[in-house]
Amino acid sequence: MTRPRARPTTGEPVVPASSDLAAPRRTGVTGALVRALDSDVFYSFRRSPVTLVAALVAVLLIGASLAAPLVAPTDPFALETLDLMAAFTPPMWAEGGESVFPLGTDDQGRDLLSAILYGMRISLAVGAASVVFAMLLGVGLGLLAGYAGGWVDALIMRVADVQLSFPAILIALLVDGVARGLLPRDLHHDMAIYVIIFAIGVSGWVQYARTVRGSTMVEKNREYVMAAIIMGLHPGLIALRHVLPNVMGPVLVIATIHLAVAVITEATLSFLGVGLPPTEPSLGTLIRIGNDFLFSGEWWITVFPGLALVLLVLSVNLLGDWLRDALNPKLR
């Protein structure tokens, strides 16, 4: 049996939207802050303990990695401080551990905690840059496809379909392989980080494009867009000014979840050895290096970067899930 529904085209919602007309209207930064803290999104945030913990972990990890030069005990890149004699020191609580190396050291005597903090910084930077790149590409193409329609739409979406039939990691490998083939060896070494950003970005744009195209096709038939057409505005202007701001909600959700995916993809590539060079070790690189010593008993070299990766990805993912639910009026 179907539930009774309000007449869809008519009148006020039974439960009014978040804004409270009676509340005094504030403007400026404090106003925006007050509104944000008072919003339904923030409310659902406070009500979910899992989300709170995830946010705390994410902020802690991201904050610590951004502030790595300040908080890390040593600088793992400063070769002069490396002490090969200190290599393979176990974590401080294990037998033979030293309190200067809380999580132990790797094969070159680098402090593992510092390496993880710096590595996470690189992982996050690569992840965020790939997300931004994929987002720009995907949102742009999706908006174009959805708004222009016709053969433009068909072309873009067929490319997307084809790409979607390959696993993302395969595409990233392909891009990396092509880059290696085209670029001279030295240059490739310098360019590695950009190549990998491009590779991950290109492998992830389809999702943005599909979502944005879908919402664009809905929004472009809305009456406010027709009003703008009747005003004679240029189609590009209408797409950017009217449609784009109204299709960005879901993009934010995808971007958050994609960040976790991008970090994992980068880690996978680095683990496979086609990612970042050991001179700029990301979490994935650290795990790969540690992997060599797993069976000789030096488990910490690979386990701690792995744990850091899991915590980071899990917390970002949980935040993404919450954001999706909070922004979806149907689930509220």
């Binding site: 049996m1 539930r3 009774p4 529904r5 309000a6 007449r7 008519t10 009148g11 006020e12 039974v14």
Partner: peptide
């Protein structure tokens, strides 16, 4: 009643189908 007057909610309450 006009929309939001509570007429549909009254009906839904009577047949136990309140959302």
């Amino acid at each position: 009643g006009e929309s939001g007057a509570g007429k549909s909610q009254t009906g839904a309450a009577i047949i136990g189908l309140l959302e």
